[in-house]
Design a protein around this nucleic acid. Structure first.
Lengths: 223, 223
DNA sequence: CCGGGTATAATTGTATACAATTTGTGAAAG
DNA sequence: CTTTCACAAATTGTATACAATTATACCCGG
């Protein structure tokens, strides 16, 4: 594995898993030491992460972990709704049978995990969910779309909220995926887009509820 | 100006203005020489351009100028339709009066240029058009949207097709901009989005016609 | 004449060294 | 005691040097 990739993986994991807090400054030297590579590939990784929206660069000051307000989160959901709907429309026209089979497999395993809830099922669901959306994007086979979506691959947003999903919401999310596959197998772009819209807006609704709960909790704490 | 920015500007201009053909390989050393900087900032610029979709990286082989088929062009128009519609919806809610005034000014000047056609009006229209869409994006005030659109800032597509616009198409494009401003001033997101959709799909139509003409011309040539 | 393989050259990937800018500290003046 | 200026430490930005990988050219065998 290349040194740049190594640095990228480490920094990304540190951000997503919360070892860097939003707004934190990431110094190149520190990462270079922990990753046991030089600063050059670290800079490369940081710039890539900036393009993906996980960090922001300030000239001559370095990299800071991006922080989203609730407003920006709403925008991300809106953008995902529009772009992923387009993705599934393309999929309905283009996806190979093999790709559809893979999507079905992922969706079915996610539904099993969501209903049977084995040990560590939350992590498993998050992983399957991520792979499902990635596979979808891949099956849409559009380089331009992939590039646009890359900036929204804000896994933190999805990842962090997953543990706040109710059991029913988790199952519904998995069922959305399954219905989406059905729509794709039927080669019906409108159906697929409709399911995807519902999927994203349902996720936004969960996010809003969680956020409001947190706000209330904070309000009581400070009061 | 930083060396990285310098290299970025040079490479980008070389691609957009056709000095690099699609599929061409860009070697770091060559750029470093012409830009009079070291390879380090050149690599940085290349990676940024990759994020913006203008070039593609192959590991251990370097950077290649991206090439779009007609299929990819269609995708870019689709993506622009969806993203810019969202942009104007945000604008209708958020844009300051000053921003609206600037947009109106740009649109009016474009209409004048399109109807009176002074010397060098094509370049002027291209410039005003570009500034209009940039101002729109800025007024929408969404960092996430800006990042997503950056990957589609494929000026080559817009720039090259402008000289193929008929006089009527040029005027219509300018009128679209004016009506869009009117919709924004009325704070009506649906109206604004509708105008934008029409605007983009009209542009796509022109592109298709031009493309088909070119195809025919090529067909006769080779026949 | 053509295909394969090896050696050489060119290019990318990485590390290190240096320059430029910023930030933090501390002492002196008010 | 606070503020301001200067200096020092730290960090980013860039250049250069080196290692690893890939492309090319040439020679040899068929």
């Amino acid at each position: 594995m290349s040194a740049a990739r190594k640095a990228y993986d480490i920094i990304r994991a540190d951000i997503i898993e919360g070892r860097y807090a939003p707004g934190d400054r990431i110094t190149e030297g520190e990462v270079a030491t922990t990753a046991a590579v030089s600063r050059t590939p670290v800079r490369e990784a940081l710039h890539r992460l900036e393009a993906e929206g996980l960090i922001r660069f300030v000239p001559n000051q370095g990299a800071f972990v991006a922080s989203w307000g609730v407003e920006e989160a709403e925008e991300i959901f809106e953008l995902r709704a529009r772009l992923e709907c387009y993705a599934v429309e393309l999929c309905a026209q283009r996806a190979s049978d093999a790709a559809l089979a893979e999507l079905r497999d992922l969706a079915e395993r996610q539904l099993v995990a969501a209903t049977e809830r084995p040990r560590g099922y939350l992590k498993k669901i998050a992983d399957l969910n991520s792979r499902f959306h990635t596979a979808l994007l891949h099956a849409s086979n559009s380089e331009q779309l992939r590039a646009s979506m890359a900036t929204l691959a804000n896994a933190p947003l999805v990842f962090q909220t997953f543990r706040d999903y109710s059991e029913e919401s988790l199952a519904r999310s998995a069922r959305h995926h399954l219905e989406l596959v059905e729509a794709l197998e039927a080669r019906n772009p409108d159906w697929a887009a409709g399911v995807m819209r519902a999927h994203i807006y349902a996720a936004r609704s969960v996010f809003r509820n969680v956020h409001q709960s947190r706000e209330r909790a904070l309000g009581q704490k400070t009061a």
